[in-house]
Nucleic acid binder design. Structure first.
Lengths: 231, 231
DNA sequence: CGTATGCTTGAGACGTATCAAGTTCGGTGG
DNA sequence: CCACCGAACTTGATACGTCTCAAGCATACG
């Protein structure tokens, strides 16, 4: 495998790096490292320290915490153009989540010094970072309210719609990510069996179609209604 | 009431403003506004736009979202020295939560332009902001995992310990904040009656003592054990 | 002092988790 | 290429935690 270059990276212009000068792009390129991860491989472990940020060049990643009983809680997903590990770097705390590839992924590592010099020297990059963090914080607050107040049925419908927004549908309305039933349960915050039962109800009601791990969204307005979303 | 001045504000040196120069402090002072709020008064409403950030000079504030059934979900608290409203300002999104005084509070308003010029001109302030945001994001992730995985009993114990850390205990081990049973329920994500029942169990087991809205923590190690906290 | 609001307790219903048992699927080696 | 094995998935029965509803009680306030 050859190292991907930032200047030819298709995701750069929609990422936090969109405003970098040619010189800055070259600096990042020169300092970064890069790795391939297969499905199931871990990029970093919750509790460890990080010395930089990871930028997804290709593939899909789940970020999760382990609860007190050892159960995974999926906090968010990252895909091409997204950065991960920045929270821990900027707060100078240990990583609050683990990152694992859910399909083959290419991930670059940008060392701390490089990130900090961009923050200091490139106001646009800095504002992009501030914006990303504060957007994520808003999303987290919504999730908190949902988990605290909505029943599993509504949360599962909402999760399907979130996956649609994050990974998009193909021509056949299939969500472009493959997750196990257990992983779905670990987003929704429920038991695997509950996910299975509710999915087959959604299927019976013709809101979705199931083909293995592929989920097709047949009736998004109805799913939205079931999810109890107004805003 | 007279407007409090930043240079005599007891909380400034432990806030995001700790690194401001004398000149910068004067600029903030000159541009800011200030208000008193009684318990129950709203500082800002979820969904609105904000044109600056709010800095707590005195008092205690709850930040909450309304769920789809109109139920409050308390997201976090703010006290003297804390800022609120920065998330919406920085993400250029509507306010994701409402802020309401839970005891008499004095709150200053610092306009957007002032905040942005500090971000641009004072790297220390900028890093403080980044750090605050990323710390909050880590806290939010923990809350998500707890809500998804822990039973109400554990979450209530954890909430009492969180309130202790946030508002501290007095000499009599009483948590220095008065919340209604309903507000406690709106932190934990449960029904008021469940909070009442579990509190009286904790009391029976001599972990806490109850005197109206005052809660005394008699056995913190045991509460920690019930909360199922390891880290 | 009366009234509204918050608090408390109990009974019952409901949602969701757990446990147990089959079934299907996907990958591996013969 | 097929048979096999383990993992993932599915379904059902049951148990349990938590919510809801209803009523009585305490408390604060005008």
């Amino acid at each position: 495998m050859e190292m991907p270059h930032c200047d030819t990276c298709g995701s750069r212009h929609k990422s936090v790096f969109c405003s970098l000068s040619e010189q800055e792009v070259n600096n990042v390129d020169a300092s970064k490292g890069c790795n391939i991860y297969d499905r199931g491989q871990v990029i970093f472990h919750e509790g460890n320290r990080t010395n930089g940020i990871y930028c997804i060049n290709k593939g899909k990643i789940k970020l999760f915490q382990l609860g007190s009983e050892g159960k995974e809680q999926i906090i968010r997903f990252a895909k091409a153009g997204d950065i991960i590990g920045y929270r821990a770097l900027l707060s100078e705390e240990p990583l609050s989540a683990s990152a694992e590839a859910i399909e083959e992924a290419v991930v670059c590592f940008i060392p701390k010094a490089q990130v900090f010099s961009l923050i200091t020297d490139n106001p646009n990059f800095n504002f992009k970072l501030l914006k990303t963090l504060s957007h994520e914080l808003g999303e987290a607050a919504k999730i908190i309210t949902d988990l605290a107040q909505k029943p599993v049925r509504e949360r599962l419908a909402e999760t399907l719609l979130m996956l649609k927004d994050t990974f998009e549908l193909n021509e056949e309305k299939t969500i472009q990510v493959k997750l196990s039933r257990e992983e779905l349960a670990n987003i929704v915050g429920t038991a695997t069996e509950s996910v299975i039962r509710l999915l087959s109800e959604f299927k019976k009601d013709e809101m979705i179609a199931l083909e293995g791990r592929n989920i097709r969204l047949l009736n998004i307005p109805e799913l939205t209604r079931v999810a109890n979303i107004f805003d």
